[in-house]
């Protein structure tokens, strides 16, 4: 019964959601939107569980003296944002100031780090150790030369080569991956619906 009840609920809800995508019956549409509302409510409760987990993990760190400074910064951050939101509202200038002055720049800083990480990952990947890697290296050099504007100085038809590489072999490969991933995703959804895949319930055969 431990697995059967969740699988039965998954099946009924899943079939209802699929039906909602294919039929225009008011009862079904209402049920679908009702289920979606339940999803939002459950997610909100789960967010509370997540916040409790954060406070417990980092509270324990402070207590045991393990990475105290980081954990303290996180808990103070949560507390400040929470009270600013509750006391002044999420549309208030205080909350917006905190978000725009702290959260947004720090997020942008993390995003900006990608530029350096792309460079270091590319440096490791662009080593001609076999035929595949050599093809990757050559195509990358062509793309980089075109993007920097040097390519067309070397030869006027550099652009054509770049667009052919991007639109033919690259796009074909990407589409192959996308089609396979989509089939896999639909297939696994069907398997979950009929109760074959139950790993998310903790079951490992």
């Amino acid at each position: 019964m431990r697995y059967e009840i969740p699988v039965a609920i998954t099946f009924v809800i899943g079939i209802l959601m699929i039906l909602g995508g294919f039929v225009d019956i008011p009862v079904v549409s209402n049920l679908v939107s009702e289920v979606q509302n339940w999803g939002i409510i459950i997610s909100s409760f789960a967010l509370g569980v997540g916040a409790i987990n954060l406070v417990l993990v980092h509270g324990r760190n402070i207590k045991t003296g393990k990475n105290t400074i980081y954990s303290l910064a996180l808990i103070v951050g949560i507390a400040v944002m929470f009270f600013a939101g509750v006391a002044f509202g999420t549309q208030s200038s205080t909350f917006t100031f905190l978000y725009d002055s702290l959260m947004a720049p720090m997020g942008a800083a993390m995003f900006a780090m990608l530029a350096f990480y792309v460079a270091s990952a590319a440096y490791r990947a662009f080593v001609a150790r076999n035929l595949d890697a050599t093809v990757l290296l050559v195509t990358s050099i062509i793309c980089i030369l075109y993007q920097t504007g040097l390519g067309e100085l070397i030869h006027p038809s550099f652009g054509k080569l770049f667009f052919w590489l991007n639109n033919v072999p690259n796009l074909a490969g990407q589409r192959g991956l996308m089609v396979c991933s989509a089939i896999g995703a639909i297939s696994v959804s069907i398997r979950i619906l009929v109760g074959i895949e139950r790993g998310y319930l903790g079951e490992v055969e």
């Binding site: 192959g176 991956l177 896999g184 297939s187 696994v188 055969e205």
Partner: peptide
């Protein structure tokens, strides 16, 4: 691609799961 989605069948080797991957 879809290799990730074969994880359950790969680890369990149960006929039911393998059959589902065959269908895929």
């Amino acid at each position: 691609g879809d290799e990730m989605f074969a994880g359950g069948a790969f680890y369990s080797r149960a006929p039911v799961r393998l059959g589902a991957v065959w269908g895929q």
